[in-house]
Design a protein around this nucleic acid. Sequence first.
DNA 1: CGAACTGTTGGATGTTCGTCATACCGTCAG
DNA 2: CTGACGGTATGACGAACATCCAACAGTTCG
Lengths: 105, 105
Amino acid sequence: MASDDDPVPDISGVALVDVLRAVADPIRLRIVQTLADGRPHAKCGTHWNFGVHKSTMTHHFRTLREAGLTRTTVTGRTHTIELRRAELETRFPGLIDALATGDAA
Amino acid sequence: MASDDDPVPDISGVALVDVLRAVADPIRLRIVQTLADGRPHAKCGTHWNFGVHKSTMTHHFRTLREAGLTRTTVTGRTHTIELRRAELETRFPGLIDALATGDAA
DNA sequence: CGAACTGTTGGATGTTCGTCATACCGTCAG
DNA sequence: CTGACGGTATGACGAACATCCAACAGTTCG
């Protein structure tokens, strides 16, 4: 069954500067932009076509989660990642929208 | 007289991730939040009460300018810094507002 | 069981970054 | 002119970071 795994910080304890630092990386920014559709995404999906190693992606996913941006659900051997959109909107109004709208170039 | 100094990048060539990286620092974030009132601020003002060295502030100001966030005007021996609010709003709608609203803690 | 699949963990490494200290430069006042 | 003021430039140093590699662990399936 699907069980919540990987502890996430309480949104009230998340500092804006930490969120910004988490997002201030090309790969992590694109992850957040992809996740901004509100739907959960599998970690192994083909969406993530960066040319980096498996463990590097693990590192980025963990950074995002520890910064309070995402939540991970483990189902069997597949991990699903999801943006904490509602919570983030409450704490940092307009931020995610601004990031998602952002032009890549 | 007041002359524009210190070249700034064209706003169209500024990448979101670079803006985020510039702002992903406690000191620079607070500078931007202070500058978000739209008014120019002198670099030597008492607003900047971080306990860091002079040259460190120069480094942060330069980082913000090179990232396309600010513009510097030199008047005599005092330098005035200003947020490129309108341009940033056009390129990254809602971003500055989201940063300025952001709770410090 | 054993093998493939999906990810994590623990180094190791090269780079970037924030900070300081010192020296330097243009500007204004006496 | 000479000194104080406002900033910049350069160099050094330690910490943080992105990346890779190899090894490991839980899950599913034959």
